[in-house]
Amino acid sequence: MTERAVTEMSFEEAMAELEGVVSQLERGDVALEKSIELYERGAALKKHCEARLRAAEEKVKAIQLAEGAPVGTTPVEGL
């Protein structure tokens, strides 16, 4: 089975896989080479999740509020 490219994953998919990777590594019952592969995959997943969160944060910041109602938005690419 081929692993799905991290860049194609939604935040939720990447986070779920990252949780699985962390769980496997914490158990410590994985061979050294597999542990290294898992660690590398986990690092890529973490980076992807952080980028998606930053993009979402920027999108939220772009909404300007006045008296509780949006008065304008600035388009943010990437989400």
Rank of each mutant, 00 (worst) to 15 (best):
A14P: 13
A55W: 00
L18W: 12
K59W: 01
A69K: 15
A55R: 06
H48C: 05
S35L: 01
L45M: 12
A44P: 06
K47D: 08
R41Y: 09
V60P: 00
A55D: 04
E26N: 12
V21K: 04
S35G: 11
S35A: 14
M1A: 13
A56N: 03
D29I: 09
V30P: 01
E57G: 01
L32E: 12
R41W: 07
V21M: 00
S10L: 14
E67F: 05
M9S: 14
E8D: 15
E67A: 14
S35V: 02
V71E: 08
A43L: 05
E3H: 14
E77F: 11
E77Q: 14
A43I: 03
G28A: 07
G68I: 07
M15K: 13
F11T: 07
M1W: 10
E37T: 03
E26I: 10
A43V: 07
S35D: 09
H48G: 02
P70S: 10
S23A: 12
E8A: 15
T2V: 14
L38Q: 07
A5W: 10
E3A: 15
A44V: 02
L53Q: 01
E17A: 08
G78Y: 08
G72E: 08
Q64H: 01
A69P: 00
A66H: 08
M15I: 09
M1L: 14
Q64E: 09
S35E: 14
L79C: 11
E19D: 15
G42K: 02
A62K: 02
E33W: 06
T73P: 00
L18D: 03
L79A: 07
M9G: 10
D29P: 01
E77C: 02
L18C: 06
A44C: 04
L32P: 07
S23E: 12
G68T: 04
E40C: 06
E8N: 15
V76D: 00
A43T: 07
E77L: 12
T7E: 15
R41P: 04
L53C: 00
L32V: 14
V21L: 02
L38K: 05
L25Q: 02
Q24E: 11
S10I: 06
R54N: 08
A31K: 07
E77W: 08
R27S: 04
V76K: 05
P75H: 05
L65C: 04
M15A: 13
E12T: 11
V71G: 02
M1I: 15
V76T: 06
R54C: 00
K47N: 02
E40L: 06
K59T: 06
S23M: 08
E40D: 11
A14Q: 11
T74M: 03
E58S: 03
M1Y: 05
M1S: 15
M9N: 12
A16G: 09
T73C: 03
E19G: 11
E37A: 14
R4T: 15
V30T: 04
V60K: 11
V30H: 02
L25D: 01
L32Q: 09
L32K: 10
L45C: 10
E57Q: 06
G68K: 08
K46S: 08
P70W: 01
E8C: 09
R27D: 10
V30D: 01
E67G: 10
E13A: 12
Q64R: 12
E17P: 09
M15N: 13
L32S: 09
I63N: 08
A31D: 09
I36Q: 12
H48S: 05
L45N: 04
